[in-house]
Nucleic acid binder design. Sequence first.
DNA 1: CGGGATCCACCTGGATACTG
DNA 2: CAGTATCCAGGTGGATCCCG
Lengths: 178, 178
Amino acid sequence: MKNTPLYETSCPIARSLGRIGDSWSVMILRDITAGFTRFDEFQKSCGIAPNILSRRLKDLIDDGLLEKVKYSLSPPRYEYQLTQKGKDFRPVLLALAVWGTKHFSPEGPQLQLVETETHRPLRTAMVDAATGEVVVPEAYSLVPGPAADPIIRYRHAYLRQKKAGVEPLKFTPPEKQG
Amino acid sequence: MKNTPLYETSCPIARSLGRIGDSWSVMILRDITAGFTRFDEFQKSCGIAPNILSRRLKDLIDDGLLEKVKYSLSPPRYEYQLTQKGKDFRPVLLALAVWGTKHFSPEGPQLQLVETETHRPLRTAMVDAATGEVVVPEAYSLVPGPAADPIIRYRHAYLRQKKAGVEPLKFTPPEKQG
DNA sequence: CGGGATCCACCTGGATACTG
DNA sequence: CAGTATCCAGGTGGATCCCG
């Protein structure tokens, strides 16, 4: 999508969206993560127009999520592979699949998470790596980290005041957007 | 975004993308999950044009992720709140934040995951809910579930053949896209 | 202050055709 | 088979103005 402004924000979510913030990019990552590698596989599986697919692949390569590898010399044939950055996108895909299944699949699960080796169905939970205790989404928050810039800090400070009931107050971040 | 075709596919990832498959929708969910509730807060925090924000909010309400609640009678004032469906989107946001921090934040973490109560930094892991053992992304796969339709099944069967090295074979799904 | 309406340049994405 | 090129309708999103 190349939503340029989001590239340059400080928020890591926004930065991610700057790379994959459009449906086709995610669909391509879905397919390649599943095992598709070739142009026309993506095209048919996604139902995407070839020119758009071409652009998206180029963008994903530029952003370092994919690489194009020659697998045949004559005729020259290429396939697309995930880089580590691309492989690391997998948890996002999983989260999307879980969310979609839960809320947009009245007919039941179209997809199911299994252990690859054994085919055993898997139910996952998030735990604190230190204690091993299950962490529910409501129990954690994202707060400014060590490298947080003024925009991130301001936003957090504002929200703290808001939650504390300090009103009225205005949200006017140091610079325009974040 | 209302990418209509994706609404009607069978893949839960695609269905999710049909709802939030554009950057602004996710940015709004980011903000409201963080604690923002009002139109102009979203506008300033995201740096989004008001007309686009208006559309997106409407879409998110239509899709059942948000609801508009009157919190003042005169003058009439509304705020936006997450429904359960919207709250359940949180793991996706977290996954995006983790991915963005790891790969697009050379200066260090702008955001940090902490336990809300104690402010203690949190490192999370995914475990098998049954055994409690840590699951690495490579160890699981998404396979057709109980309610999987022919397109999903065909795609999986094709990929199994592909991985087994059966070549050449053509990907021609039962219907156009999925 | 909390939005909605309008205008408009630009981009997206579908269809189709074409090339190596 | 693996794309690229062209055309074009329609949507997106920024700016601006408006209204209660």
